[in-house]
């Protein structure tokens, strides 16, 4: 058994969907197990940080790391796994771009705690808040420290590969695992460092089957306000904000094919440096108005531009955060 290359998977600030998508490989998991020894994977098996700390540097062949860096524990483990792994894959939208948890970068830190500890649904009459350190009779106890700003994995450590998606599609994960197995067997070589794996080289629009005409938008609507969605016409043409134009292909255009706009979970398409900037460009181009007041009126229909255009990519965008978050309060 000891001869098999070692594998690890870790979750930082994430939801667990990446792990589910990975385990969804079904019988491929047997192939995987035949070729790798899983040494650390908190969701799937019991392991302790100290076991990882005791490993030799570079002892793990590949680590899939999902989730953003939200607290000191995430940061510690990111640095630890970087040291112990030959190949570190930034896995899923949260690790690559911050993902949904990264949206908290728009608000001050205390709002975050207020929501969690002081809402009507929380029974916390004395308004207790977590203390990073606490003196107990038995000694000092600590918990990880929350950071004002969520960072992406590659803002904290060096990353070898990226595998986007929220979560990455299972068939894409399986294909990447196949490549890894071939590499281990010496039948294939690794792609160049920094490559994006398991992703198409075009946009979601390109894979989307909906008809596109010359777009002239005079009104934006929220999807729940539309009585009947035309199943064949581009959603943007129906006044629904769709992130397809800026998003990397790779998901087979799943959401638009069931009448839901692309949320942008696969992250920026090749050549797109800032996801939101590309969407601002795309949306501004199709608005049919030249008068500033009329333009403002139409844009009032875009309720939450930052949350829509940076739903997954705020932490990795040019701006990275909102100004409110980094005061640390």
């Amino acid at each position: 058994m000891t001869g098999k290359p070692k594998f690890a998977m870790y979750w930082a600030a994430s939801c667990g969907g990446c792990e589910i998508a990975t385990l969804n490989m079904h019988e491929k998991i047997l192939d995987f197990d035949a070729n790798f020894k899983v040494v650390f994977w908190p969701v799937a098996m019991d392991a302790k940080y100290k076991d990882v700390e005791a490993m030799e540097d570079g002892e793990i062949l590949v680590t899939l790391f999902n989730g953003g860096i939200r607290n000191s524990e995430n940061e510690h483990i990111a640095k630890l796994l970087r040291k112990k792994s030959q190949i570190l894959v930034s896995f899923g939208s949260c690790a690559i771009e911050g993902g949904i948890p990264g949206l908290a970068n728009l608000t001050e830190m205390h709002h975050f705690f207020d929501t969690v500890y002081t809402t009507v649904s929380t029974d916390n009459t004395n308004n207790h808040r977590p203390q990073v350190e606490y003196d107990m009779p038995e000694g000092k106890i600590t918990i990880p420290e929350f950071k004002p700003v969520l960072q992406t994995l590659d803002q904290v450590v060096d990353v070898d590969y990226y595998m986007p998606g929220c979560p990455p599609e299972t068939h894409q994960i399986a294909a990447v695992i196949d490549v890894l197995i071939s590499v281990v067997k010496g039948e294939a070589v690794l792609p160049p460092k920094g490559s994006f794996l398991g992703v198409g080289n075009s946009t979601v629009c390109d894979e989307c089957g909906r008809t596109r005409n010359l777009k002239k938008i005079t009104e934006f609507k929220r999807i729940q306000d539309i009585k009947k969605i035309d199943p064949d016409l581009c959603l943007i043409e129906q006044g629904i904000l769709c992130n397809g134009p800026a998003t990397a292909s790779g998901c087979e255009s799943k959401c638009p094919s069931v009448n839901a706009p692309c949320a942008g979970c696969y992250g920026p398409a090749i050549g797109v440096k800032d996801f939101g900037a590309r969407m601002i460009t795309a949306i501004a181009s199709v608005i049919d108005a030249e008068d500033p007041d009329e333009i403002e009126r139409i844009m009032d229909g875009i309720i939450d531009p930052a949350g829509t255009f940076y739903r997954f990519g705020l932490a990795n965008s040019m701006m990275r955060t909102g100004k409110a978050s980094w005061n640390g309060k």
Binding site: L106, D304, P305, G307, T321, K323
Partner: peptide
């Protein structure tokens, strides 16, 4: 509008 939400 987008920058405004980010505090610019």
């Amino acid at each position: 509008r987008t920058l405004g939400q980010m505090g610019v």
